[in-house]
Structures are given as C-alpha cells and as structure tokens.
C-alpha cells in the first residue's frame, strides 16, 4: 500500500476505533452525560455552538498572534543587543531563565490587576508575550552564536568590522534557529492566552477558555468537550502553519 495513505489512515483508524469504544461504553453503562458525554453528543454540541465557538477561537487566536508578533520583535531585539556584549549576556541570562521557569499561572492574577480589570485582553496578550518570549530569545541567541568557526576565521582574515560580521554572517546564520523558536513560541502563546483567559474570567475577552469555564459551570459537559477539541485543532493548525512557513523560508534561503 502507498506509504502516504498509510501515514494518514493509521491515526484516523485509531481515532475511529477509540471513538466507537467510547460511544459504546457510554451507552452500555448508561453513563450520565454531565459526567462523560458520548462522542455523538459532543459532535451535536459542537455543531449547535459552532458559530460561537468559532468566534471565541478567533478571539483567542488573535490575541495569541498579537502576542507572538510582540514577543518576536522584543526577543529578537534583546537577543541582538545581548549577542554584541558578553557581559550583558551574562547579566540577562539568569533573568530570562527565571522568567521561563516561573509558571505563567503564578503571575497571571497580578498581571490581570496591573492591566486593569476592564482590559482583560491586555493582560492576556501580555501573559502570552511572556511565555512566547523565551523560545524566540534563546533560539535567536543560540543562532547568533552558532556560526561556523571557519567562516568566522574567514571574516577575521578579511578584516571584517563588527557590523559586517553581524549583518553578513551572524544574523543570516541565526535564521534557522529563530524560525524554530517561533514554531515553539506559537504553541506556547496559545497556552499562555488560554491560561490568562481562565484567570481573567469573563470581562470583555470572550475566548475559548471562557467558553470552557461557562459550559463546565453549567454542567454542559458536551459543550466543554467541544470547546476543548476546537482549542486543540486551533493549536494544531497554528503549529502546521508555522512549520510550513519555516520550511518555505529555509527552502528559499538555501535554494532547496
């Protein structure tokens, strides 16, 4: 059989089998639907609330994307400055790590207060920026420092200035690492946005997290599941788009 068909079919078959088992178990054991709804009910809930789930998904995605852009500019800028100065790098590195290892949920309540309770979307974007910053920053910094040593020697040999070295060698060398950083950051930005939405509660920002909270408070478990599935699909799509963009850019850069 064709390899590509098998690659696509195998996970679909597994999912179908699991769903069938789930549906059968719910029916045979008469599990109450607020506790565990069967897949058919989740599908029904998804279809019924499709418009509102889409709107909410768009809200969350839009905030995550805004955060990704801000994080990208900030992280690349800081990495560039830091790469030029060893002392500065030593100074910034522990702060960057501290920022990365602190769970976003721990700082979310305070950031929500700082942003103003009337502007939850600001807090959401800010928190998503915080989680998306690190992978881009560390990717860019690693990339700026991982030039081929023989190419560095060549630049020494021809008496390149610091600026020539940065623009013509180190920045282009860093691009694959920067792209990889964006791929990771994209997923994290969505997670950051959702976590922040949970903490911010309703307010004006009606993202997917709010739909999940709302339906689980009302014991509309099928709708909760539907919202979670939309969230997962959204994350997967964003990842796929970023991965495609990464490959396309690298292909253009290297000519194949």
């Amino acid at each position: 059989m064709n390899r590509a068909i098998v690659d696509i079919a195998a996970p679909l078959v597994l999912i179908a089998v699991l769903l069938a088992g789930w549906e059968a178990a719910c029916r045979i054991m008469s599990i109450p639907s607020y506790f565990l709804p069967p897949p058919s009910e989740i599908a029904k809930a998804a279809v019924n609330s499709a418009p509102i789930l889409f709107m909410s998904a768009w809200n969350t995605l839009f905030m995550a994307l805004k955060a990704l852009v801000v994080a990208s500019v900030l992280a690349c800028g800081v990495a560039l400055v830091v790469a030029l100065n060893q002392t500065l790098e030593k100074a910034v590195q522990p702060l960057a790590v501290a920022l990365q290892v602190t769970p976003v949920i721990a700082i979310a309540p305070q950031v929500v207060i700082w942003a103003g309770l009337a502007h939850p979307e600001r807090a959401i974007v800010a928190l998503a920026v915080i989680v998306a910053f690190f992978p881009i920053f560390s990717g860019a910094l690693t990339g700026l420092k991982s030039t081929d040593p023989d190419l560095e020697r060549l630049f020494d040999l021809y008496g390149a200035t610091r600026w020539q070295r940065l623009r013509r060698l180190r920045i282009p060398s860093s691009i694959p690492f920067v792209l990889e950083g964006h791929k990771v950051a994209g997923g994290l930005a969505v997670i950051g946005a959702v976590v922040a939405e949970f903490v911010a509660g309703s307010g004006g920002a009606q993202g997917l997290a709010w739909r999940i909270l709302e339906s689980s408070n009302r014991l509309q478990t099928a709708r909760t599941f539907a919202a979670v599935i939309v969230l997962a699909i959204m994350g997967a799509l964003l990842h796929a788009v970023l991965r495609y963009a990464e490959r396309a850019i690298l292909k253009r850069l290297r000519g194949r």
Binding site: D148, D150, L151, L154, F155, Y158, G159, A160, Q164, R168, L169, P172, I175, L253, R254
Partner: peptide, 23 residues
C-alpha cells in the same frame, strides 16, 4: 579549508564576492 565553508544562504557569486565586499 577542508570543507568549502560557504555561506549557505548566499549564491556562489555572492560567496566569491565576499572578500571584496568586506574590503
């Protein structure tokens, strides 16, 4: 060098022009 040590993002022409550009 033992390996060609070319800039992978630059064309053959741009790679060869590098020493002149830097000068």
């Amino acid at each position: 060098f033992q390996s060609p040590t070319l800039m992978p993002w630059a064309s053959a022409l741009a790679n060869v022009a590098l020493p002149l550009d830097l000068a």
